[in-house]
């Protein structure tokens, strides 16, 4: 028996928004520890890694590990039937071929349940080593979304360069060039509005704007976002999900021919 009850159901709705542009389907791996999902997009350029810890749920029960393959388009349709205020429960029997979503209104006067067929997915998993990155940049998530949107107008690729002075985002294309420089915040009233840079060595990498823009669909999950970079390795873009977990995106850089 698997059962996970989330008082703040809107979080699951936001998680779905953060996944569905990159992934058509994914396996939700459930264990004692919580729910994890790891999947690459079709082109194997980016990877989404979601972690929702058991402690973050109001009620969590997982008698045996199970991997539920879900069509995210279908799941998204179902979650659209939940109100933002609803409490959401995900339930499945052991070895079941369906999963049930239960939506309860806050005062319990409306309860809906939706059963969805599970899929057999044979997905590749990647082993992602713990890495000490040469640069980590924390910035407001809305600022990052704005930068990705603005620079996408100039070209397909964006260069992210980090030095101790700050971080520079640049794109070049037919109409010209755009450069956005962010300096580290000198002082801030609110932690989530800060730009904080930790740098071991300067890094400059080029990434496809299309994927970065897809990552920013997670903006509503967190006020800030962390970018981690090292020379010639994939970028990590991490959004914390309140006190329940995180969604991380990995993006392979463009490489010189």
């Amino acid at each position: 028996m698997f059962e996970a009850r989330l008082l703040q159901g809107s979080l699951l709705k936001k998680v779905m928004e953060a996944l569905k542009e990159l992934l058509n389907e994914a396996a939700w791996d459930c264990s004692d520890a919580g729910i994890q999902l790891q999947a690459m997009d079709n082109s194997h350029v980016s990877l989404v890694s979601l972690n929702l810890r058991a402690e973050g749920f109001d009620k969590y029960r997982c008698d045996r590990n199970l991997s539920m393959g879900m069509n995210l388009g279908s799941m998204s349709k179902i979650l659209k039937c939940a109100s933002n205020e609803d409490i959401i429960t995900i339930k499945a029997q052991d070895n079941a071929d369906t999963v049930t979503f239960v939506f309860e209104s806050p005062d319990q006067d409306k309860v809906s349940d939706y059963e969805m067929k599970l899929m057999n997915l044979d997905q590749e998993h990647l082993g992602i080593p713990e890495t000490d990155y040469a640069c980590t940049i924390r910035l407001p998530s809305s600022e990052f979304a704005r930068i990705c949107r603005d620079l996408s107008q100039f070209g397909e690729s964006m260069v992210i360069s980090c030095t101790k002075e700050g971080v520079r985002f640049s794109a070049t294309g037919d109409i010209g060039t755009g450069n956005i420089k962010l300096a580290q915040s000198a002082k801030v009233d609110k932690e989530e509005e800060a730009v904080v840079i930790e740098m071991q060595e300067p890094v400059s990498l080029t990434f496809a704007c299309r994927y970065l823009n897809s990552f920013t669909k997670a903006t509503s999950l967190s006020k800030s976002v962390q970018l981690s970079m090292s020379p010639e390795v994939p970028l990590v873009v991490e959004y914390k999900i309140e006190d329940i977990g995180h969604v991380r995106y990995y993006l392979a850089p463009k490489i010189e021919d």
Binding site: M40, S43, H44, V45, S46, L47, E124, H125, L126, G127, I128, P129, S157, T206, A208, V233, P234, Y250, A252, P253, K254, I255, E256, D257
Partner: peptide, 14 residues
């Protein structure tokens, strides 16, 4: 020129 890298060339497939 530049080409788009793929993640499976950076990380081990389990």
């Amino acid at each position: 020129g530049q080409t788009q890298g793929r993640l499976d060339t950076f990380f081990k497939v389990l």
